[in-house]
């Protein structure tokens, strides 16, 4: 699952540096460059090229936090597909439904956290229902599963439109998460010598932190726990796992619940940072598709890398070439497919 597992050709290259060391040096230099870009006060020529330091650093931060959101959505998608060969194109609808439910609950009870919990729990239940009543019946038939999920997404989008109409909702963020944080990043120096620090919404940083925590948790669950072991075993050989006395369908129902629940969770969290409106389902479906195609199916770390690439590309594109931003996303996908058709972290099959 990690870079370390890949067969490295380090022992092949002679000379002063092994390939791994060379890569290490490369990443070190890249990290140093990024650190300099973020923390140093920019010289004039750099400001001239990249508009302004504030715009650049904000774009990077926006990209990274958006990546956190994309990761939450795509990790469910990649889990479900990679582990069960179950393409759920209704995943975007799960996101949107989660957002609406979170809005309703948070709005009526007044507790934002309750909305988040409801988004996760209700969608996890919906996921189990979908797995048990729909996808299990079509097990082993990729195409029909996909078609059914498309049908579900059409009906779901229309029903949600009927219930919540076409308006835009914003889930209110609680006070303790609202407000801006001043970061130790100097964007400019005033003529009187005072430094201008960058401020950034606290909530977005919390989203990012939540995404990281959940990502690590998922990785630990898959690789260190008994359920995770069962999931991985079930993927490799379902019949054998079943023969050793494990209820495989229960395992898959758990995975579906977690995947769908994460989409719902992301819906509430994303609906608080951005907004909830019809059409968001398609947006997040596209994001999950590209993230998973780029990152590799079934790989949590791949989803993280893919989400980071796509989130950054989207936000940087938004600032530096506004009307061609989506092309950047597209180029990343094509390049990834051309170089590694199975995705950056995907296993060749």
């Amino acid at each position: 699952m990690s870079i370390l597992d890949r067969p490295s050709s380090s022992d092949l290259s002679g000379g002063g540096m092994t390939r791994r060391q060379a890569w290490g040096l490369f990443w070190l230099l890249a990290a140093a460059l990024v650190a300099w870009l973020v923390f140093a006060v920019w010289p004039e020529w750099l400001n001239a090229i990249l508009i302004s330091k504030k715009a650049f650093v904000s774009a990077i931060l926006n990209g990274v936090t958006l990546a956190g959101l994309y990761f939450l959505v795509a990790s469910g998608f990649t889990l479900i597909f990679g582990l069960m060969r179950n393409v759920n194109l209704a995943h975007g609808s799960l996101y949107l439904l989660g957002a609406y439910i979170g809005y309703e609950v948070a709005n009526r009870t007044g507790y934002w956290l309750l909305g988040v919990a409801a988004g996760f729990i209700v969608l996890a239940a919906v996921g189990v229902v979908m797995q048990v009543f729909v996808f299990r019946r079509l097990e082993g038939d990729d195409l029909r599963q996909t078609l059914v999920s498309i049908g579900i997404s059409i009906v779901a989008a229309d029903v949600m439109l009927a219930v919540w109409a076409g308006g835009t909702y914003q889930i209110a963020v609680p006070e303790w998460l609202d407000g801006a944080l001043t970061l130790p990043v100097i964007t400019a120096v005033r003529s009187n010598g005072a430094s201008v620090f960058l401020t950034y919404p606290l909530y977005r940083l919390v989203v990012l932190a939540a995404a990281i925590v959940i990502g690590v948790g998922l990785w630990l669950m898959l690789n260190k726990t008994r359920v995770g072991m069962m999931i991985r075993a079930g993927v490799d050989d379902r019949a054998m796992l079943s023969a050793s006395g494990v209820n495989v369908h229960a395992v898959f129902a758990i995975v579906f619940a977690v995947g769908a629940g994460l989409a719902g969770f992301a819906g509430v969290v994303g609906g608080s940072a951005l907004s909830v409106a019809p059409g968001e389902d398609i947006r997040y479906l596209l994001a999950s598709l590209v993230v998973v195609i780029v990152g590799g199916m079934g790989s949590i770390s791949g989803a993280a890398i893919g989400a980071l690439l796509i989130g950054l590309a989207e936000q940087i594109g938004l600032i530096y070439f506004p009307t061609y931003g989506i092309v950047l996303t597209f180029v990343i996908m094509v390049v990834a497919l051309a170089i590694r058709p199975q995705g950056i972290m995907g296993k060749a099959r």
């Binding site: 393409v87 990729d142 195409l143 479906l285 596209l286 598709l289 998973v292 195609i293 989506i326 996908m333």
Partner: peptide, 18 residues
Amino acid sequence: VRTEGIYTIMITLAIATA
């Protein structure tokens, strides 16, 4: 066509949406 099977539907959907 660099990938096979169900990937095609995902890639083409991504292209159409993009």
